[in-house]
Design a protein around this nucleic acid. Structure first.
Lengths: 169, 169
DNA sequence: AGGCTGAGTTTATTTTTATATACTCAGCTA
DNA sequence: TAGCTGAGTATATAAAAATAAACTCAGCCT
């Protein structure tokens, strides 16, 4: 256990450690998926939509924002466009999630789960996520590399290699 | 397996199912924590900050927005204020996370993890989250109730009890 | 050739955020 | 009792984001 963790520590990180708040993976993730509509677009992709017009219809999101968000997601490698063609129509782009996009699923599942727990409709959740193999309900969890299920209060956040002090002002 | 899942299904939800996109736990969660600064405030609480002035200094967020976001988080029961008193100062409010707030940790860990994987500084992550008991790295995962680790493509999303068709337009 | 459709782009307007500054208010300290 | 401090509130302005509606453009269909 690190020296600064000994004696009287209550909080997760050394108090007064003047981190640079923008040098943070959470902030960097939110720069990409934290704008309005982005997560909901990903939700729709995850639920099986892939057409521009589907996103627009289901989300009710303005077209220019939808175009901007899709452009961002493609630039960032979270979605890719493929061509698809329906009989009688010309070829159009199809938005498909990449492995990098798939890696956002735990975060989105976490949001879904919190909403199900605290803000669901009286009848229950709108969508159930199940394991395709065994049919059991899927849940976002936090676990350590030893396989223990870790509750929030059993975590400690320690400075990593890129933790630089905030430049003095 | 449900009838609509048979034959030719590729996407996670029955195609053309006209869900009402706003009747969604993800959307409802984002209504509360999806505004700018909110998740970053929670991150700071999680890292051990609790004073108004700490949030302001570390995040560089405007005071009026900070006050508005804290008010929202308290209204929603994600944070509570307690009184704390430093010697020589009068009693002041301290923002403390509730169990309801703790339940957002899996989602926030998911965001952290994605940023660590795809947008970290060259030196590595800024913060490491460890299990207080065994010291091992903590990770956000998706698992089913049978304990299987479930990848995104092994999930299926099926309509839940509150899945009403979108009202015809 | 003319119309239709999906996938956007453009432009104008409104709403949110951001920034900056001044102000309040309680209680500790000199 | 006057000043200082932390935790806000109030107000004004500027910048950014969201919304709404009209417009473009390619290619299929008649």
């Amino acid at each position: 256990m690190d020296a600064w963790m000994e004696s009287g520590m209550e909080s997760a990180v050394a108090p007064r450690l003047d981190r640079d708040a923008s040098n943070c993976s959470i902030a960097r993730t939110l720069e990409i998926v934290g704008e309005k509509w982005t997560i909901l677009i990903l939700r729709e992709v995850w639920y099986g939509s892939f057409r521009f017009s589907d996103f627009e219809r289901v989300l009710g999101c303005p077209r220019n924002l939808l175009a901007a968000r899709l452009r961002m997601l493609v630039e960032q490698g979270i979605l890719v466009t493929e061509a698809y063609k329906e009989p009688g129509s010309r070829s159009r782009p199809k938005y498909v999630i990449t492995p990098k996009g798939m890696d956002l699923v735990p975060a989105v599942m976490g949001l879904l789960q919190w909403g199900d727990r605290y803000r669901a409709a009286p009848e229950g959740p709108t969508v159930l996520v199940r394991h395709r193999g065994c049919g059991a309900r899927v849940e976002a969890q936090t676990r350590c590399d030893h396989g223990h299920h870790v509750q929030a209060h059993d975590m400690e956040s320690v400075p990593g290699p890129a933790c630089l002090p905030k430049p003095a002002q």
